[in-house]
Write a protein that binds this DNA or RNA. Structure first.
Lengths: 175, 175
DNA sequence: CTATCCAATTGCATTATGCAACTGGTTGTG
DNA sequence: CACAACCAGTTGCATAATGCAATTGGATAG
């Protein structure tokens, strides 16, 4: 897993997020506010396996993108949090999402978040990062508007709209 | 290799560039203007193996990020070109480079390009993308300034500066 | 006391990556 | 024309990563 093949920033970043799962896990924590192992496992759109998730989380903690702490409300629960480094991946997420939306067969309802992030631009990203700092690093809130909430609402509204486009009777026909 | 685990733009992008080599190969073509198999193989900072490079190029051509054509000057030579989709990865490269420069142990001389791209911002990226369209897609030149040249010069100057910091006698001691 | 929840781990199969050597052919040089 | 260098890969083999299904050793809720 560990490399350090060269000191090039692009290479070094790919050594960290250059696999099929790391960014997807961080995406779910970032935009879906998943903080527990189970949440990440069972709500994973892509269906990550538990051993892969386990290895991925361990690695992300090791390299300082996540931190792992006990949940005071439950002795067995573990809370994963984004580090400042991971929070600063927001522009990367936005840029990658914008690219994927244009150049890959992205679903419309799943693209709505990418679209809002792209349209919002760097100012929105900064606002969102501040919100993540409140949620994950215990920072004190700066603004009252919730970008996370806006993104989530738009995402769910799009999901609803898609549902009505394709009635349940039709959807049932799809195995 | 082929997945399509979900229609999420971020996931779909990671299914394309989410491996250790794809972005590094595209980086060398983009910033180092490497167009032939040998150039990519022998000038690779990270030391890619020929079978990996071969598989990677094949895959990138398959998914439409590169095109492959015969070199008219040499019957055995093959020219690889960036497609419009790949050229539009410039903002992704810039954002990823900026992140790596801050959050990973990047070498200073290898960071100079990432730094210039970051400081130049979206306007510089657009200019650079236009230059890539000239080089890779046969577009007609729009501007006389060469961002590629600027980036290359800065990169080589930084490499020279590093050389003088560490004289050859000292460098030789390092096995 | 028991069913459910929790964060993983285990065993096993399939893929991907990595290394070194090699292939079949083309081109430039003497 | 002979020969070395160059060209884009391929082959065989070892190691590492990923994926699937079942299971573990607890903790908690009813």
């Amino acid at each position: 897993m560990l490399d350090n093949r060269s000191g090039c920033p692009i290479n070094l970043t790919m050594e960290v997020i250059g696999d099929r799962w790391s960014l997807v896990v961080i995406r779910d924590m970032m935009f879906g506010n998943r903080r527990h192992f189970r949440e990440l496992l069972e709500n994973s759109m892509e269906g990550i396996a538990s051993n892969i998730l386990s290895a991925r989380l361990k690695h992300l903690v090791d390299i300082g993108l996540l931190s792992r702490s006990d949940d005071p409300s439950h002795k067995q629960k573990v809370i994963y949090s984004l580090s400042e480094s991971a929070i600063q991946l927001v522009p990367v997420m936005a840029t990658i999402g914008a690219w994927g939306r244009r150049h890959r067969p992205a679903t419309r309802e799943l693209s709505i978040r990418a679209q809002l992030l792209e349209e919002g631009g760097p100012e929105l990203w900064e606002e969102f990062m501040d919100e993540l700092r409140v949620l994950h690093l215990g920072a004190s809130p700066k603004s009252e508007f919730s970008v996370l909430q806006k993104l989530t609402e738009a995402f769910q509204a799009a999901a609803e709209a898609t549902k009505s486009e394709l009635p349940s009777s039709d959807r049932d026909k799809i195995k």
